[in-house]
Write a protein that binds this DNA or RNA. Sequence first.
DNA 1: CAGATTGTTCATAAAATAATGAACGATCTG
DNA 2: CAGATCGTTCATTATTTTATGAACAATCTG
Lengths: 160, 160
Amino acid sequence: MAAALSELEKEVVNIFVRIAGLLSLPRSVGELYGVLFISPEPMCIDDLMRKLKISKGSTSQGLKILRSFGAVNPVYVAGDRRDFFTAEAELRKIVAGFVNEQIRPHLNNGKERMMRIESLLIEETPDRKEFIAERMERLQGWQKRANALLPFALNFIKPE
Amino acid sequence: MAAALSELEKEVVNIFVRIAGLLSLPRSVGELYGVLFISPEPMCIDDLMRKLKISKGSTSQGLKILRSFGAVNPVYVAGDRRDFFTAEAELRKIVAGFVNEQIRPHLNNGKERMMRIESLLIEETPDRKEFIAERMERLQGWQKRANALLPFALNFIKPE
DNA sequence: CAGATTGTTCATAAAATAATGAACGATCTG
DNA sequence: CAGATCGTTCATTATTTTATGAACAATCTG
């Protein structure tokens, strides 16, 4: 039980490790999701540690991150005290969770910052002020578009 | 000339440093773009180094990255041997460049990998095979959606 | 051409990020 | 309740990423 990763498993894990990289998530998070994604049965921390040869700490924290945006579902296994997990396979749920947890906070922070800049603008010399004001408007435009695109993108990912 | 960053400049730079983080780009790249973004005049490496108090190496490499996806435009300044730059302010150009340079390669790699997995699938036991096949199909579905969303998102960002 | 100036590269240093594993608290088991 | 089992946390270590700056090549200047 809990043999090393098969060739196929390695490939799948590799895919998710790459995705994790794109999303600035630790490698181990990608590994964990990958293994769960191709596992027909739910797995517990111990299974995952052994399979991936990573530490208990990494495993626990990785699962915590995955849970935080709903990429992983806790599963009750009768007669076993340990916590088991399966991969959430509905893309929309994962993306929505990820956006809410990891993206939205940053966007909001940007808004506040913009207000502050507006107030600082007053102290500039007239010529610079004009230019900077133009840039600020542009920046706000970008922000609006990003904010508009987000819900659209989420909707684009249709439910199954 | 080339005084330290004003309060306003700091705020703007800060915004772009955050964006750089989201895109997994070095902090210095965000700083460079930020300073250029609010500068009415084109700037050369020396201006940027002094303004941001970063090394020449970082500045040169940072500009290289920014040029690689068209976030920065070389500008000819009469009577000066040095290279000057302004920030590209048209979002669409930047995003398109970024996607082509930093995202597309990864997506393609994913396709190849998928093929390889298909071939490995043969060696699985029947019951596992069924499950894994289902997952692979799902994964391919995700890939298709991502590929479809990308050009759409680009188009969403309307010119001017 | 000799000396300056400018931008790039790359080995090294510094900083940031992730992984490890021992310590701990919580829960179960007999 | 005493011991065992689990999962989490966090100080430390390892790894990866980024920044530095000296060396260099290319170009200009008189």
